[in-house]
Computed example of a mutant assay.
Amino acid sequence: MIAAVATPAAGLDGEVAWHTYLAVDDVDAAAARAAELGGVVSSAPEAVGPPGQPAGRMARIVDPQGAPSRLWQAGTRLGAQVANAPGTWNFSNLLTPDVDAALRFYGPLLGWERTDDLGAGMARVPGYGDHLARTIDPGIHERQEFVPPGFADVVAGILRAAGPARWSVAFAVGDRDASVTAAQRSGATVLATEDGEWSKEATIRDPFGAELVLAQFDPPESFL
């Protein structure tokens, strides 16, 4: 599994968007904690999937700055099992006008920490890299031997940005420019492009109105 595409649930606002799911051990406890921290639980925890073998339990929340997301307690569906390969989920960034306020919510809720030595806006959970090494990515520490300590623990980005707080979802592509061309042929609109030190990205809006980022891994030659 790499992502999900579904029609809006009954009773919701019908917004077309890519949503970020945040893994938790106990969705009922996490939803209650989100409310205590000033967030809104826009739909109560509920089982998702067939009776007797639920894919998981989910709650929809909105953080105190207005950014919606989902809390996910895994059942048979653990989440994205492939990432960073072309065509799969790459990263989720919280874009917010107030980074400190965001951390006052997501820190106590999810155990997130942010340190500038990992790069702008990187949020991490201590021990997450060790978890990946034990489970789905046994070579993560060797592969990241030359990056700053703790980078394997990064789970999301929290970046200062103008406008309302929102989650930005990036998908990996092998060739950003070719992917942009293909997206435009299918009716997408290009909103912005950026050539960074480690990636080439394009923010697009699909024909249905959902925004997403196409991200091509493009490290400096000294890294290769």
Results as ranks from 00 to 15, higher is better:
110 L>R: 08
110 L>Y: 11
111 G>A: 05
111 G>R: 03
112 W>T: 01
112 W>N: 00
112 W>V: 00
112 W>P: 00
112 W>G: 00
112 W>M: 01
113 E>I: 01
113 E>L: 02
113 E>W: 01
114 R>P: 01
114 R>D: 02
114 R>E: 05
114 R>V: 12
115 T>P: 00
115 T>G: 01
116 D>M: 04
116 D>G: 06
117 D>P: 03
117 D>E: 15
117 D>C: 05
118 L>I: 02
118 L>C: 03
118 L>T: 06
118 L>D: 00
118 L>M: 06
118 L>P: 00
119 G>Y: 02
119 G>C: 09
120 A>N: 05
120 A>D: 12
121 G>S: 10
121 G>R: 00
122 M>Q: 09
122 M>G: 01
122 M>W: 06
122 M>D: 01
122 M>K: 09
122 M>L: 13
122 M>F: 15
123 A>F: 01
123 A>Q: 03
123 A>M: 04
123 A>T: 12
123 A>P: 00
123 A>H: 02
123 A>C: 12
124 R>D: 02
124 R>I: 06
125 V>H: 04
125 V>G: 00
125 V>I: 15
125 V>S: 02
126 P>H: 13
126 P>Y: 14
126 P>T: 11
126 P>M: 13
127 G>T: 06
127 G>E: 03
128 Y>V: 04
128 Y>I: 05
128 Y>K: 02
129 G>W: 04
129 G>Q: 07
129 G>N: 07
130 D>W: 02
130 D>R: 11
130 D>E: 15
130 D>I: 05
130 D>M: 05
130 D>G: 09
131 H>I: 14
131 H>R: 14
131 H>N: 06
131 H>S: 10
132 L>A: 10
133 A>G: 12
133 A>V: 07
133 A>T: 08
134 R>G: 11
134 R>Y: 05
135 T>P: 15
135 T>I: 12
135 T>Q: 11
136 I>S: 13
136 I>R: 13
136 I>V: 13
136 I>G: 10
136 I>Q: 10
137 D>E: 14
137 D>W: 15
137 D>G: 03
138 P>C: 11
138 P>M: 11
138 P>Q: 12
138 P>K: 12
139 G>D: 15
139 G>S: 13
139 G>H: 12
139 G>V: 09
139 G>R: 13
140 I>C: 11
140 I>K: 04
140 I>F: 03
141 H>S: 04
141 H>N: 04
